[in-house]
């Protein structure tokens, strides 16, 4: 516990001093803003660009605000995910590769505390980024379109946050397992694709699959997801995260010989 707080302080300083604590949320805010803004200005852009045939009259239906926020979440699922991978692929692997980890590893270091400090910091910044991103999206949707129930937004973001934690756990564990950041990114991305693919192909009946969490998150905006399925999916996800934490601590210890001396 004592080592954990020492290492947390180190992570905190690192993320402030390399500006990650600013630019990761900034990208999510940008993503959150883009969707409502583009949807709002799209009709005007199309009209003024003159790409429409002479005399054609198009009725652009105003999309419901729920649809805009779901689209924001889809942005997070693609670009947002790539940003998180980019930001944290090197969190353990980079330290070993550059050799900065060596002077930590030669001390009586608690590897669970070490891995956990990495995970907590990456999770905290990722969650805050997702939250302010949704908040920005919500603000612009309110401005240009219509109100979404605050409670519904809260439930959606809460459910989606569990999914984000799973993604971050995969990224940080991959960073601990792989020899460099690039390979960690490749592995994290491959795992993500395999999860999506497996669920897409065979998972129609797997109601408690973690991959369905984003769907359940979006479902809060329509009515509400099936509470049993949601609880099951959250439970499974929590177990997987726990397993990843144990694996990450172990593989960090196992890989300590790979630090550059």
């Amino acid at each position: 516990m004592k080592q954990f707080s020492i290492l947390m302080q180190k992570e905190w300083r690192e993320n402030i001093r390399n500006y990650k604590i600013y630019w990761v949320p900034a990208i999510f805010i940008l993503l959150g803003i883009t969707e409502p803004v583009v949807n709002f200005f799209l009709p005007q852009i199309l009209e003024s660009s003159g790409g429409l045939p002479e005399g054609a009259v198009f009725e652009f239906p105003t999309p419901p605000p729920e649809q805009i926020l779901t689209a924001v979440m889809e942005q997070f699922q693609t670009i947002g995910l790539a940003v998180l991978i980019l930001a944290y692929m090197g969190t353990v692997a980079g330290e070993r590769k550059s050799g900065t980890a060596t002077l930590l590893y030669v001390r009586p270091l608690s590897f669970p505390a070490y891995f956990l400090s990495k995970w907590v910091m990456a999770s905290a910044i990722s969650l805050v980024s997702v939250w302010v991103g949704f908040l920005a999206g919500y603000y612009y949707t309110l401005l240009f379109f219509d109100r979404v129930e605050g409670m519904e937004l809260f439930q959606m973001v809460g459910t989606y946050s569990i999914w984000v934690l799973l993604i971050v756990s995969i990224i940080v564990a991959a960073s601990a397992a792989m020899p460099n950041g690039g390979l960690a990114a490749a592995v994290a991305f491959a795992i993500y694709l395999i999860l999506q693919l497996t669920d897409g192909l065979f998972g129609a009946a797997w109601s408690i699959s973690p991959v369905k969490l984003p769907q359940y998150a979006a479902a809060w905006l329509a009515d509400s997801p099936d509470s049993g399925s949601l609880a099951g999916a959250i439970g499974i996800t929590a177990l997987i995260i726990l397993a990843l934490l144990v694996f990450g601590s172990w593989i960090s210890w196992k890989n300590k010989a790979k630090t550059k001396v």
Partner: peptide
């Protein structure tokens, strides 16, 4: 509305640029 819409973007842009 336009001002309200643009203000946050402007602030983020300025902050990032200065940092």
């Amino acid at each position: 509305t336009l001002v309200l819409a643009l203000l946050p973007i402007l602030i983020i842009q300025l902050a990032l640029m200065i940092f």
